[in-house]
Design a protein around this nucleic acid. Structure first.
Lengths: 340, 340
DNA sequence: CTTGGCACTCTTGTATTGAGAGTGCTAAAC
DNA sequence: GTTTAGCACTCTCAATACAAGAGTGCCAAG
């Protein structure tokens, strides 16, 4: 890519900032007032050049300029100031996390809330998962004569529960014995190993094992995975979504959890903050949106994704800062939970 | 309330049905074509009378008529045909419930999905709760050296989990012992009793008891209660919400879970299906909506609420049928789970 | 009590117009 | 060579006007 002149950089940066702020095509006069030391005519020349190069476009002949995706991309890569979350905000966030109980579910909720709040976009968070989850512990608890609760704890920290119908009443004592026995057999194994396990079990025990295997299969397939979401409202307030079909398209996408899940994994292959702008995602339904996301967690063991979804006209610096900080924080918390 | 003539009943019913279907003010000519055996002029007279009586209104001088809330109310009370969910649909729904695991959480999700689907509105469901929840069982599970998982099961079937940080490592064996000991002490008690409990406990044990009490307090206060929702999208497709401020108002309300919770309990005091139309709710934010809901469960023990939220121009018969059926079904399922 | 007829009202869609914003280009100034 | 003032041009947007259509209310006759 050919380099732009310093002034072109400056003009492009101003256009992006101005447009992000006001959602209105920005003209030469506005730009001049913004403080470049040259006349509007000069700026018009630069604007024409930037348009020629594909960084800007005009919605129609006599409107101001709007950044193209290429323009945003260049802005994010080369023009944008690094943005760290203000220290006060960082402290506040840390504080909130320490106040909440040590529960993955709650962490995810809080992460989404915090992210939505500080990025002014829609936050998306997935719980940490490893390639193949490993069994840690199960516990059977009598609920009534005919029903028992099966709690399954995975090494990743995920806790799944499942009720099961009992053919005949079983005492809590016996359930405990079964739990202990199965824990000995299953501890540390992954789903595949458990499915392949060939040991002598009672009918009830093998029922339980089958359920455990099924649950772990679901977790592995991420099919049961929830995407924690927050801040949907903020995004609707953006002027580009005042048309109701667009709102619908957006909401429909956000409802489709499976789609979100797939996207999140696809766009955040490794650690670090990734930015996907509009149609770069190669997905039609994302054409009007950008997403900033990062993988967090213990690489190789268990990782999840945090991200911010917003209009292409998004506050990238702010979002990137927020995502980076929250990802780091969640990573620390996980490390601590796993006792490292 | 003075009775209407038979023909007025018929005209009003037609207006409601027609308007519910097409969302357009309905005029005398449309009504005549619908099959009353009289001319449009006669119908106009009846319409004028119904307007005089407050059952109908005109959006403007020369438009058709639209039902008022009073009109809908009369329709629901006196004019509407009883509507039972078709047997095929009933069977399909039952089938779905039997396919799913015996898990309250899953039931609620499914109930919301089913309700949304068959009412074409937004479904709202709350999990069963009793006045004062009672402790059934707890289980401590070692996650790492520094963290244990506390699973709390309540008589109502609710399962809550909470991680807790350990000051020092505790063996799974010891955790088991603590669990057993506390189960003996706490079994069957409600939150208040647990808070008042004065027995000799280790520091760790009393930590656990304190957490249990806190969780139960939250459950009692319904502050942690989730409202299961589904079908938000359908409601947005209604023409009355094409204006984006209205969509926002709606979504904002649906996001406010605490508000929903409060409303649901308020409007479904006892068993049976309740219908609240528009401003009857005395809540400004509900002015444009109606809600059909029913309390389900084991009265006196544990009950929840299922409901359908939609525009005032809602298919009441259909919604009432769906809500009634799902409420009954959930009640049966709960009874079975509690082994009655 | 019902109905045909008719004038009247109000909305809605379309066409027209003028103001405003912003551009591109040219020619002069630096 | 770059910058700038000037100006004609283009396009949007809001306001206005107008015609068509839907529906009403009312009167007088059946």
């Amino acid at each position: 890519m050919v380099g732009l002149t310093e002034r072109q950089d400056q003009v492009l940066a101003f256009v992006v900032q101005e447009y992000v702020e006001n959602a209105q095509p920005v003209g030469s006069e506005t730009l001049r007032r913004r403080g470049l030391g040259v006349s509007s005519a000069t700026i018009r020349n630069e604007l024409a050049a930037l348009e020629e190069l594909g960084f800007l476009m005009q919605p129609h002949t006599s409107a101001g300029r709007v950044p193209t995706e290429k323009g945003y991309r260049y802005f994010v890569e080369s023009l944008m100031d690094e943005f760290e979350l203000p220290l006060v905000e960082q402290r506040m966030i840390r504080h909130q996390f320490h106040q909440v109980t040590l529960d993955i579910d709650q962490w995810m909720r809080l992460a989404a809330a915090v992210l939505a709040h500080s990025s002014h976009g829609a936050a998306l968070v997935t719980a940490p998962q490893s390639e193949h989850c490993r069994f840690k512990h199960l516990q059977l608890i009598a609920i009534s004569d005919q029903v028992a609760l099966l709690v399954i704890v995975l090494y990743e920290g995920t806790v799944k529960q499942q009720m099961l119908a009992l053919a005949q009443p079983i005492e809590q004592e016996d359930l405990m014995r079964v739990s202990n026995r199965l824990n000995d057999y299953l501890g540390g194994r992954n789903g595949e190993q458990i499915r392949a396990l060939a040991i002598a079990l009672s009918a009830f025990e093998s029922d339980v094992v089958r359920i455990v295997a099924e649950v772990m299969r679901q977790v592995d397939a991420r099919s049961s995975q929830d995407v924690y979401r927050d801040g949907m409202m903020d995004i609707l307030r953006q002027p580009e979504f005042s048309a109701s079909e667009r709102i619908q398209a957006l909401l429909e996408m956000l409802e489709q959890r499976s789609l979100l899940e797939a996207m999140l994994s696809e766009f955040a292959p490794a650690r670090g903050v990734h930015v996907v702008i509009g149609s770069e995602s190669q997905r039609d339904e994302m054409n009007d949106f950008s997403i900033v996301l990062a993988r967090y967690g213990l690489p190789g063991e268990a990782t999840g994704v945090v991200g911010v979804l917003g209009p292409v006209r998004m506050q990238y610096a702010r979002s990137i800062g927020a995502v980076r900080y929250v990802a780091g924080l969640l990573g620390d918390l996980m490390a601590r939970m796993h006792g490292r």
